[in-house]
Design a protein around this nucleic acid. Sequence first.
DNA 1: CTGTTAGCGCCTTCAT
DNA 2: ATGAAGGCGCTAACAG
Lengths: 340, 340
Amino acid sequence: MSKELLNIHAVAARAGVSAATVSRVFNLPDKVAPATRELVTRTANELGYQPNASARTLRTQRSRVLGVVLPTLLNPVFAECLQGIALAAAAHGYAILPAMTSYDEAQERQAVDQLLAASVDGMILTVSNPSDSAALLRLRAAALPYVLAYNAHPEHPCISVDGEAAAADVVARLAALGHRRIAMVSGTLAASDRAQQRYRGYLRGMAAAALQAPALVEVPFVATAVEALSHYLQTQPRPTALFCSNDLLAIRSIRAAHLTGLNVPQDLAVVGFDGIAIGQDLTPALCTIVQPNHDIGRHGVELLVHAVVRGSPPGPGDSLCLPYRFYSGESCCAVAAATA
Amino acid sequence: MSKELLNIHAVAARAGVSAATVSRVFNLPDKVAPATRELVTRTANELGYQPNASARTLRTQRSRVLGVVLPTLLNPVFAECLQGIALAAAAHGYAILPAMTSYDEAQERQAVDQLLAASVDGMILTVSNPSDSAALLRLRAAALPYVLAYNAHPEHPCISVDGEAAAADVVARLAALGHRRIAMVSGTLAASDRAQQRYRGYLRGMAAAALQAPALVEVPFVATAVEALSHYLQTQPRPTALFCSNDLLAIRSIRAAHLTGLNVPQDLAVVGFDGIAIGQDLTPALCTIVQPNHDIGRHGVELLVHAVVRGSPPGPGDSLCLPYRFYSGESCCAVAAATA
DNA sequence: CTGTTAGCGCCTTCAT
DNA sequence: ATGAAGGCGCTAACAG
């Protein structure tokens, strides 16, 4: 096949028109006579021609590509979100260019630089800490449209849920079920503004229920999380309920409880946060705060597409706080009379 | 900020050299005097300059981008694989452009077309059926390097595991544990060559153990899988072991068993396939065939990068059959004497 | 070792 | 309604 000559001129020559006309057929179909348009379209199809995206981008300064910066896909929360982003982007004629940062700020900055060089039209990102992010500074300096996902910050456009209210809500529900020793489990608190937000909500909820909050159970390393949690659950006094800052931790807590000989939820209620899809198929089904992960991605895309159309980047005022939902799974129940 | 003039000429002017020299500093650093190189590097950093990827692509016909075509990220298998792809690609200086197809062949073709127009240097894809795929024909016609992931087919370069052997292995192990009524559960068989491969292995294993294979339990719709499985488990004679063609189905089978009042593994052994990371943290820990999902992605990237370097696309001869591993999780045990 | 020159494929005024 | 011409930013020959 003469693959090398499959450019706009080849189509033009074959159709007996100029390159400009072919271009117009693809970009401004209304400005070309129906007969010519039909001819060019047919010729292009026969040859299997598609406009070269790089040349287009170079010329128009618009790539129809959105950059995506996420910590990892090994947490289903972000996989679900990326799926939402991918579908929404495709629906709007955009491609996506994702980069994974492993919760590392240096990699966040590097990813942003790379995506800037790729001429993306906008970026959706989840960063470790929006307050103090070199990556976000770059974006502002470049005046590139961007939205944060999951992060919440007054100075940036964000798609998020009110994690603080949700966490307080969880504690209130646990208290209403008779739990008094309610502990919170999280990963490295400093590495995630979401965890910090949820922790604030937890403290607020405990105060509102007039309960004393035991020390935060920080589980820094995923690999040893189950072990650390098992150890923790053997110390006295044991909590009757565990509020975990994410679903993966909740799942590991349930495992740790079993290894310790505790039944969930009878001996230990476990509540997660995130609403990963798989949680509902587990046994016991995971009790958790369900975030609209798919929609968080979708709204991020739509905000950016909208911004491109109107020509001005999204600002903090465009932030969206989406509703969450308490999923009353089987991993949580009223405290047993004996252990209360 | 004078964002518009941040091109190679701006750097050249500021450093008092020509654009060609700046270009060489970025592409052939050895061909420029150390002093000049240092000067240019410093100037570029001061200005925050990075070469424009589109222009580079247009000029060199190489984009340093790999296309990725996967069914969905809602199955952690593919999320884990994509994570592997993303990390490996980044390590080799490549970006990735993923597209999700929802197991739909029309979308597979569309994704390939879009990625071709984006001038990707190669593609990694998982398709419904490699034998009869319009998407793969396009790739061949375009002579673009590509590798299949998970798919196995003699006429294409593939990174896969021997699913048939693995499935036969599972059956042999279950038989050795005393199971005689071993049923297999899968999604729509026609929609996945992997499921078909595993089913062949199952049948082979049953024959080898001189056991009669009950009818395949096909669960077409994810939304109603638990319900369908619960119903199935109430019919007599019930199997003592279930071999599921993927881990998500295994997890749902375990749930269905519980809803039916059966204990896993005492009343029903459940074995999955895929080795999604979360399986090991479940209770009972999922017994499954562990595939190296991350490495499947990584090898795919490396095969493509290698091909670009040597200048010829990978062929069927470059296929890699990676080792799998039987993870002896808690969802499987010897058949109870009474139910055997 | 460095500068000059000529496009890569496309879109977009401007002219017809 | 269509064509001709220039340049987006970059790299690769070719000179010097």
